[in-house]
Write a protein that binds this DNA or RNA. Structure first.
Lengths: 186, 186, 186, 186
DNA sequence: CATGAATGAGCCTTCATTCAT
DNA sequence: GATGAATGAAGGCTCATTCAT
């Protein structure tokens, strides 16, 4: 039989993604996981705890994805690889992005997860900055911020705002833009 | 005496921004507006209704802000003006952005507001595209999408992700980028 | 323009019949009658008042129906006429019976209408007894009670209990029964 | 300690009988049962659910009462026994009849219980028909309908319409009527 | 590790009624 | 006669959480 703790996390992640944290009750999670109400509180002290556990897991996943492309690429190749895997992931697992956005944007969950969010974001920032620095850009930091903003904005718009979003064209445009040497000259 | 309906909207907007829709109870709104519980349902059939009303108001505000800069600017000036007013607004009224992001990102509110969100976004897209087209860019549409994503991503990161966000530098970088002729050559 | 007071009574009667007294709100009545909330309370001090007014009206109607057949019939003909018009009315206006039954059976409405119910029932009892007495039955009173019970029971079963109710056959049986001289011999 | 679920049913049955379904709040039931508000919804998903549970229980009780007289009676004795136990029960437990009538007559509860009402009525009809068939009456079905209507009408009048109801005399009359051979000759 | 009865606060909503205009 | 804003109590129901077993 499957590990119950893991099962609960799985079900809760799915529910939090689809309906949001506030709109998912512990009871519903129990029901869907075919687990007693007592058990969920045995494994996670509170609902907030469960959320934090889930956030940590998604952070691990993000790091894992980013780590795989640490090969013997040139900096620019690294960048392209980053963009590439971002778009692939975005198309493959919308719910994953949905969950992360909503955890960050919802006032209550942001407060709850504040420390973990900071940890994760500074990791990502450093990671991206590492790449930009190698391209010898004078202002690697600012470029990293903008790069991240661009990708996050694309995810946001793709998921929440535009009914039809030309993901492919945008990806192409982005790839071209970061290959173009002009933008690094300032 | 102040108009109660308007007062309720004001208070609710503030609460929805600060704590989120799900985390704001109608009772709390009534209490803060010093109004009876019945009255809120006299003016708005449901809580969802109240949310829609608020979303419509923020859309109006967004349109209003964008309309003021339709003067005898050159296209590039228009763009700079757009960026400028975005950053000014972002710093001046974080809650306004917070509210809009969370309404769009929260699964439940997004569902509730879906039609209104589509309306608003296509208005914004057309509006931005109108500017890019005048700059004679071959792919005004894609550039518009990217431009919007960039700004949205900046708002998202500024509000939710990074504790310290170098807004000024980013703005400078952005202004420079969209003045630079290079990016329009493709 | 139609008289508003009458209009309200009409709409309320319909709603009370279809959904019951407790399940009909004054607001819904106002809405359906296209009348302001204030007006309904201008014409009827309370909801209970409105109910009593309606009950009185239905009593008037019942009396009216029963009075029309006070012609130069023989007693037995009178009885048959009574049965006849009961069945005709039952088929023609189920809601009318529905309303009367529910007003009498619902604890709250019965309490509210108690005096009016007693008035009406004793009128009906006297009316029926008047007929049975002429048939020279020794126990006209008991027969009247049973006669009324039979009709009420038929209405009750027809409306509420049996999905398919053989109203025609039952009517035939009843007509025959009260023509048969045997039942009067005791 | 007593079983809480059963206790809730008991209290609710009493309240539904005395004040009607719509006029009994879940809170009142909880209060009277000395049980938390949450518990009632733990055992019964909704108020409607609780009602259905109660209706089922009263059906069981009705069936149970009717089953006890399946002894070696002649058909006519069976009938008299039926009448007898009906009147005994009617005097002993007015509330029981009150509840059943109001559940059937109230538009909302009838809708809610429709399937269960049909089930119960057809059981009773078959049960009564079984007796009349043995008396070799050509039209057992119609007689059964009339018999049931008569008893239901008596209950209705006794409980709801007439302040003073000569139950004893009516019972006597009824017993005599169904002993009399005349009524079976057609 | 696992169950599910039990709690009590809180939520959205409805409703009869009042009152100033 | 007529309107509709305003009230406040009450209602059904949900939910995170606890605890005895």
């Amino acid at each position: 039989m499957k590990d119950n703790r893991e099962l609960i996390i799985e079900v809760a992640t799915k529910f939090f993604s689809e309906r949001g944290f506030e709109n998912t009750s512990m009871s519903k999670v129990c029901e869907a996981a075919k687990v007693s109400k007592g058990l969920i509180f045995h494994h996670f002290k509170t609902k907030d705890d469960l959320l934090r556990e889930i956030f940590k897991k998604t952070t691990d996943l993000i790091i894992e994805i980013n780590n795989t492309n640490q090969q013997d690429y040139t900096p620019k190749e690294e960048l392209l690889e980053l963009i590439n895997s971002f778009f692939i992931q975005l198309e493959k697992d919308k719910l994953f992005f949905q969950l992360n956005l909503s955890m960050i944007v919802q006032p209550k969950t942001r407060m709850l997860l504040n420390d973990l969010i900071q940890e994760r974001s500074s990791f990502i920032l450093q990671s991206v900055k590492g790449v930009f620095e190698k391209i010898d850009s004078k202002n690697a930091l600012i470029m990293s911020y903008l790069f991240i903003a661009e990708l996050d904005g694309i995810a946001l718009n793709y998921l929440g705002i535009f009914d039809t979003y030309p993901l492919e064209e945008i990806k192409a445009q982005l790839l071209q833009k970061y290959t173009n040497n002009e933008i690094y000259k300032n």
